[in-house]
């Protein structure tokens, strides 16, 4: 099939990075828990007691993961992500991020129409009018299903306000 593309990130690097990231989260939880006391009050454990130890266990366990990764380094020269895979991930994640930004700014109906249409045209190679028809139809169907049928309002933006749709 395809020739294997060059490794972008090795598995070892990713193991270490994720262990360190998790460790940082654990430390953050410990730090945050100290706000309300991590010891014992008159009525048993203080509010920070449980989260503090949860954070501490995260730090200890991620140290374990780190040590394991270092010990197994020699047997493991796998790649985590090749250049080609990285490209695919980016091509998928980028527009998705754009969709969230647009949703917050313009509301979900407009955002999903723009998102679906542009992904289908740019990445799927569809003709514009076909892509536009499918995305507008999706937006209308979502409106009927959520707002009319299940009475669940979705995030709306300036366009809906202008049209007077609530």
């Amino acid at each position: 099939m395809q020739t294997p593309s060059a490794t972008l990130v090795s598995r070892f690097a990713m193991e270490v990075a994720s262990a360190c990231f998790v460790m940082a989260i654990g430390a953050l939880v410990c730090f945050g828990a100290r706000e309300f006391g991590i010891g014992w009050g008159d009525a048993g454990p203080q509010p920070g007691y449980f989260p503090f130890y949860v954070g501490l266990i995260i730090v200890i366990a991620s140290c374990g993961v780190l040590v394991q990764a270092l010990l197994q380094r020699r047997d493991r020269r796998e790649s985590f992500l090749t250049r080609e895979q990285g490209g695919r991930i980016l091509a998928f994640f980028g527009p998705m991020l754009g969709f969230v930004v647009l949703s917050v700014l313009l509301g979900m109906y407009v955002a999903l129409t723009i998102y679906l249409c542009s992904v289908m045209v740019v990445q799927g190679g569809y003709r514009f009018h076909k892509a536009a028809a499918i995305s507008v139809a999706t937006a209308v169907i979502s409106y009927v299903v959520f707002e009319v049928w299940f009475l669940v309002p979705l995030l709306k933006g300036p366009l809906e306000a202008w049209l007077g749709v609530h």
Partner: peptide, 20 residues
């Protein structure tokens, strides 16, 4: 290329409907 983004949309709509 159609189904993937549709699933994305469904996931985010689902996330929003939990608490608005």
């Amino acid at each position: 290329s159609i189904i993937g983004p549709m699933i994305v949309v469904v996931c985010f709509i689902g996330a929003y409907t939990i608490a608005g």
